[in-house]
Simulated assay, not measured.
Amino acid sequence: MERRKVDILCVQETRWKGNKARSIGAGFKLFYYGVDSKRNGVGVVLKEEFVRNVLEVKRASDRVMNLKLEFEGVMLNVVSGYAPQAGCELEKKERFWSELDEVKESIPTGQRVVIGADFNGYVGEGNRGDEEVMGKFGVKERNLEGQMVVDFAKEDKETWWWNEEVQDSVQRKRLAKKKWVMDRTEENRQEYKELQRRVKREVSKAKQKAYDELYTTLDTIKGEKDLYRLARQRARDGKDVQQVRVIKDRDGRVLTSEESVQRR
């Protein structure tokens, strides 16, 4: 940090137990959280001259924490995250994204957010269809964890599959969030969390229906892009995953052969 003139740094897999702040030398201080000295743990390192700018430290878990600072009236939220590795259970991955969602949603509108995280995923080469949230210089093929990163980056940007139920639920959730931000009572918090759950249910149903319809258009460019998302959604719903092998002929036409694979 000293050599590269870095003032704020998010760190992961610190493996330090506790929820403290400590000087680590060379004029830097580490705010960290961990529950096990052998695994996980996240933190944010600050140049000590900025420690006085810290307003709040929110430690959601040993995988997600948020450091809120104020610079000349501007609120900056620095979120450090550490996603489960590819071999971990899907439940642990979903818990991480839920925690990250909750931290992000708790940040009032207008405040700046920077997320520095080890997402443990590959978003893949190219960015066709996802240009608004990623560049085109990724590596390898996109995996499940990488798709989760892309989905998180889009939030409400991907709205082509919305129906009336989803639109209504999202609007209610936004109003509930605004109400909770203005008056942080337990009642308002519970109302907001319930609407969050409702939105997720409506989104899940709407996505499933939309993806099932797109499944009939696999020989199109758009259909090819959505193959991975369709498989991921069905896997999360606990249904059989249809594996689709994509092959193109000399004219660029997509040929498909399907085989039903029981989700393990």
Rank of each mutant, 00 (worst) to 15 (best):
L69A: 14
L69N: 10
E70N: 12
E70F: 07
F71P: 06
F71M: 15
E72V: 11
G73H: 07
G73C: 08
G73S: 10
G73L: 03
V74C: 09
V74N: 11
M75F: 08
M75W: 07
M75I: 12
L76C: 05
L76G: 04
L76V: 11
N77K: 11
N77M: 09
N77E: 11
V78I: 15
V78A: 13
V79A: 05
V79S: 02
S80Y: 15
S80D: 15
G81Q: 03
G81H: 03
G81P: 01
G81E: 01
G81R: 01
G81A: 04
Y82P: 01
Y82A: 03
Y82W: 03
Y82F: 09
Y82C: 04
Y82R: 10
Y82Q: 00
A83V: 10
A83I: 03
P84Q: 09
P84W: 10
P84F: 11
P84C: 07
Q85K: 15
Q85R: 12
Q85T: 15
A86H: 05
A86V: 10
G87E: 14
G87I: 10
G87S: 13
G87Q: 15
G87N: 09
G87M: 13
C88D: 02
C88Q: 07
C88T: 00
E89Q: 05
E89W: 01
E89K: 00
E89F: 00
E89I: 00
E89M: 06
L90I: 12
L90K: 05
L90W: 12
L90R: 09
L90C: 06
L90A: 09
L90P: 01
E91Y: 05
E91W: 02
E91H: 07
E91R: 00
E91I: 06
K92N: 08
K92E: 04
K92P: 04
K93T: 03
K93M: 06
K93D: 01
E94V: 06
E94F: 07
E94C: 06
E94R: 05
R95C: 07
F96E: 01
W97T: 12
W97H: 12
S98D: 07
S98P: 02
S98V: 07
E99P: 02
E99Y: 03
E99A: 05
L100Q: 02
L100T: 01
L100S: 01
L100A: 00
L100I: 02
D101V: 07
D101P: 11
D101Y: 14
E102Q: 15
E102T: 13
E102F: 11
V103P: 06
V103R: 06
V103T: 09
V103S: 14
V103W: 08
K104W: 13
K104E: 13
E105D: 14
S106W: 10
S106T: 08
I107A: 08
P108G: 03
P108I: 02
P108H: 00
P108T: 03
P108F: 01
T109S: 15
G110D: 13
G110I: 04
G110H: 05
G110F: 04
G110V: 06
